[in-house]
Design a binder for these strands. Structure first.
Lengths: 203, 203
DNA sequence: GTCTATAGAAGGATAGAC
DNA sequence: GTCTATCCTTCTATAGAC
């Protein structure tokens, strides 16, 4: 019994968003969702078909929230490689993991309904990276030999892998190092200076 | 009731190694371990303190098995950058995920006993990559401006992130692309040719 | 060492009153 | 829409015979 205002449906979604980030899907039970939201059994099954549908709804909202922040980083007014650099060096809570991709290793990811919001979120980031890299290349700021499409996927993989390494070691510095190496490599394929790598990273 | 020969202890460990890779830790129950191994309740709790200790034993063996294969890839007789390339382009079952790091997002990773075998395994790979990159740099095959230490972490992050992206999309090609971009970037910081990127990847 | 039997708690969902 | 009460299954572990 924690929340007062708003409908129980909203409270359930908010609680589930927290729990999915904190514990993942398998490790979260309907009881956990009810306890944290302050809703009773009936509310969950009135508004949702079950645990999976509630989780899917929460995931979709999480993706929207994250995407809003990320879209702001890819501000078209900035030089394209600055956008890429800003995304890479963005502050992250490495030990918490990626809010969406954290769930990629759950058994439930084999269900299309579960993975759809996660995959769409990741694809959108790849698109933003790809577009920025392609724009840089068209403007002569990125070497012609580089394929913006696959490098975009590589850069996102560095971030997602950085989370994995940081969590496996319970050491945020693995994320910092993974990003640092990516920025160093990016610098070697750029024909213009990239902002200082000394920006704050992770925690 | 699936296995005949060997002790029940061995059968339990083998079954657990399979299950941890297939489903992860949370999604695997002691009952699953018993069913697949053919052991009874008593055998599990006779040989191990419980689910966690059995999982830890299985993880340790998994790390040893994987490490044997990886050590062979880093054959000191090969040129150092060829080793790195061979590791990156190694065939992988992208949808199954990394046998060890797949568990980095389980809630149980907060327990040191659980994450220790995983962290040690990943650190050993970073060391092998680091040593090869440093050797290449000392031999003039890698540009002086590159830091072999952080790039080693970045390359492993690409692999682990590649698994995450492939699983989230249920599409092995994300691993292929992530690796492809990493090889392309590595090529730009090398001063000698790196073997063809057309090697077979993933499944 | 291995087995079956059992147990208390938690998981996931339903029934039905208000 | 929301609540409490209930239900069956699964989870994790223990007991005790062989």
């Amino acid at each position: 019994m924690r929340r007062a205002g708003g409908s129980k449906r909203t409270a359930l979604i908010e609680a589930t968003k927290e729990l999915l980030w904190e514990r993942g899907y398998e490790a979260t039970s309907p009881r956990d969702m009810l306890d944290r939201s302050g809703a009773g059994q009936g509310s969950l099954y009135h508004h949702f078909a079950g645990k999976l549908e509630l989780a899917r709804t929460a995931l979709t909202e999480m993706a929207e929230e994250e995407m809003a922040a990320i879209a702001a980083i890819f501000d078209p007014a900035k030089p394209p490689l600055d956008r890429v650099h800003a995304y890479l060096c963005r502050e992250r809570d490495a030990l918490r993991g990626c809010r969406l991709a954290r769930l990629a290793n759950e058994a439930a990811v084999e269900l299309p309904a579960f993975r759809q919001p996660i995959a769409a979120f990741l694809d959108r980031i790849i698109e933003l990276l790809h577009a920025s890299l392609a724009e840089a290349q068209a403007g002569g700021q990125l070497r012609p030999g580089i394929d913006p499409s696959i490098v975009a996927t590589t850069l996102l993989a560095v971030i997602e892998g950085g989370y994995v390494l940081a969590r496996a070691h319970w050491e945020p510095r693995y994320m910092v190092e993974a990003v640092g190496g990516a920025v160093a490599l990016l610098r070697t394929v750029a024909t213009v200076p990239i902002p200082s790598a000394a920006e704050r990273l992770g925690q």
